[in-house]
Simulated scan of single mutants.
Amino acid sequence: MSVRSVDDHVAQAMALVEPLGVERVPLASALGRSLAEPIAALYDAPPFRTTSMDGYAVASGSGGAGAWDVSADGPAGIAPPPLAPGTVARVMTGAPMPDGADAVVPVEDTDRGVDRVEIRRWPSAGAFVRQAGEDLRTGDVVLDAPRRLRAVDLSAAATAGAPDVSVVRRPRIGVVVTGDEIRPPGSVLEPGEIFDASSTTLPALIEEWGGVCAGVRVVGDSEADLVAALDSLDADLLITAGGVSAGAYDVVKTALAPEGVWFGPVAMQPGKPQGLGMWRGVPIVCAPGNPVSVVVTFLVVVRPMLREMLRLPDSGMRAAVVGEGWRCPPGRAQAMPVRFEGGLAFPATTGGSASHLIGSLSRAEAFAMVDADTEEVRAGDTVGIMRLSP
């Protein structure tokens, strides 16, 4: 069987999905969501002239340092009266500026008087005053789409007056993990048994990258149980872990290949055995069972599918300089776990990119993605870096 390149496999996966629909959600629920429509300011921001310091509002051309009568208080949230001639008004940060005043004396430059105040330093016009519309004008685009909404984006949208936003529906992704040998964490392991990491890892990756887990099923090496598990999930995309290689008990391959799902080698390490296709009209990605292979399959294959469904551009890779080199598998693209030190990338594990080293993967900050024709990465080389999280 011919070996697929990583680029070809990802292209085949991307052809299975399309952008999802749009829904309105409250702004407070939009963190991490994919913005579908631009957000424009509904009002000027600030909507009026406001103070940027606690202090005293003055008419800068009416006098100078010395003793002044305080004619009014101006707390935030209350429209103040016009400034009486020959006086100053006490104001708080964020309060509206009184008509007739054009500058603020910071409270630190005064004796903090209430009825009469000693001003030690006189301001120039405009000092410590925020002009109306200084940040935003009505109709200004605050946030372009598409984008993944961050906390600071929600703050900008709130400042623009948006109570809710249009976002792309989150892809629902179902997970099926297979294997007679896997047991949930906390179990007492018998000989030949291992703890199941994938049923924890995959839902976490799905949530982290903007999807929602539509359910997790853990089944043994039974074709009937696998099919029942897949059919029980209402999802936009299905992911399986385990049972895709060439062994006697590779149940996923045995059950799904006759239904038209492709199985074969992809030129990458880890994660060489792969499956891809449609199951009952739903795209399905079939990953190997080894934990690091599951993570790499998700990031290399599923992540771009998710971003397509979420209408987000591919975040791409950034470049990093290598601080310590390593050997590469011949003829396969390599996903090497790396950490960063002094701005340089170093191997994060002592075992290279082996597919079983999930325990030490927690030390990694990214994968260095090395081309299939590279035999060795040396210190000083530049490599592409794929982040482990958004």
Score class of each variant (00 low, 15 high):
E134T: 04
A40T: 15
A125I: 09
V141P: 01
Q131Y: 01
D109G: 02
A65M: 01
R49M: 02
S62A: 14
P106A: 04
A40Y: 02
A84G: 00
G133I: 10
V58K: 02
A67S: 14
S62N: 06
G100N: 08
S71G: 14
S52T: 15
L136A: 08
A40Q: 11
V70K: 02
W68S: 01
E134W: 06
D135S: 01
E134P: 00
A89K: 04
F48R: 09
L83G: 12
R121I: 07
F128N: 13
R147Y: 08
A59E: 14
V104Q: 06
V104P: 04
R49N: 04
P81I: 05
P85R: 06
A72R: 11
D102P: 01
A76T: 15
T93N: 02
E118M: 12
T51S: 15
D73Q: 14
A59G: 00
T110A: 10
W122D: 03
G133N: 09
V70L: 07
V91S: 08
D69M: 03
F48G: 00
G66H: 01
S60T: 10
V70H: 02
P96H: 05
T138N: 01
A65N: 01
F128A: 09
G94W: 14
S62I: 00
A103Q: 06
L42G: 03
G64S: 06
A65F: 05
L143D: 02
V114M: 12
D54E: 06
A145R: 11
P123V: 01
P85F: 10
R147N: 10
S71Y: 11
Q131N: 07
D69Q: 08
A79D: 13
T87S: 11
G63V: 07
V129A: 02
T50V: 05
G94T: 15
A57C: 07
D99T: 12
D73S: 12
F128D: 05
G100W: 10
P46F: 08
P75W: 13
D144I: 06
V104C: 07
P146T: 11
I39T: 04
A45P: 00
T50C: 13
L83S: 10
V114A: 13
E134Y: 01
T50Y: 07
R137S: 10
